[in-house]
Computed example of a mutant assay.
Amino acid sequence: MDSQAIRDWATAYIALQQDSERSLDGHPLFWAAERFMLPSDAASAEDCWAAILEILSRNPPDSVIGSLAAGPLEDLIDYAGPNFIERIELHARRDPAFHHLLGGVWTSSTPSVWARVEAARGGTW
């Protein structure tokens, strides 16, 4: 996926999460959340990672941060944690916003990956 497609995805995801008047079911932007669900291969997992970072870079409101942590990031860790844990650890050390985001993730992936996630976010939250 090219960078413009990632930016468009991020824009749609933020708009979807901020639309409090409509349910997600049948929402015209639901595709932006659905695209994060169970990446089918390494390339789609990479796209999810890029979209997560793009969304976070826009300093979205806490409601979007909460859904980004408990949905896309948590799912990515569960699906592809061993492939992303080093990047997750690096971002948690370098980016306070990512460190904060990581605090909203619930237990997922393998015990060894989860132990590293907990260490990266500074223990339990």
Rank of each mutant, 00 (worst) to 15 (best):
S23M: 13
E34M: 10
L68W: 01
D41W: 02
W9F: 06
D8M: 13
I88V: 15
S23G: 15
A5P: 03
A43G: 09
A43Y: 03
A10N: 05
W49E: 08
R22T: 11
L68H: 01
H91M: 14
V64G: 01
V64F: 03
F30L: 12
D95F: 05
F84K: 02
E118V: 13
P82N: 04
D41R: 00
D2F: 05
I88F: 13
E46K: 09
P28A: 10
E89F: 07
S63A: 09
G81Q: 02
T110P: 06
D41F: 11
D25M: 03
P60H: 06
W106H: 10
M1R: 04
W9L: 05
R121P: 06
A80H: 15
Q4W: 12
T110R: 03
A92K: 01
D47Y: 00
A97N: 11
R7F: 05
P72E: 10
R7L: 11
G104A: 11
P111R: 06
F84W: 14
E21Y: 13
L76C: 04
I88T: 13
E86R: 12
E46S: 10
W9E: 06
L76G: 03
D47M: 03
P72C: 09
L53A: 00
R22H: 15
Y79A: 09
I6P: 02
F98M: 07
I77T: 00
R116I: 14
T124G: 01
L56S: 00
L16S: 02
W125P: 11
L53S: 00
W9M: 07
G81E: 02
A42Q: 11
L38N: 02
F36E: 09
M37K: 06
V117Y: 11
G123Y: 07
R94C: 09
A5N: 03
F36K: 00
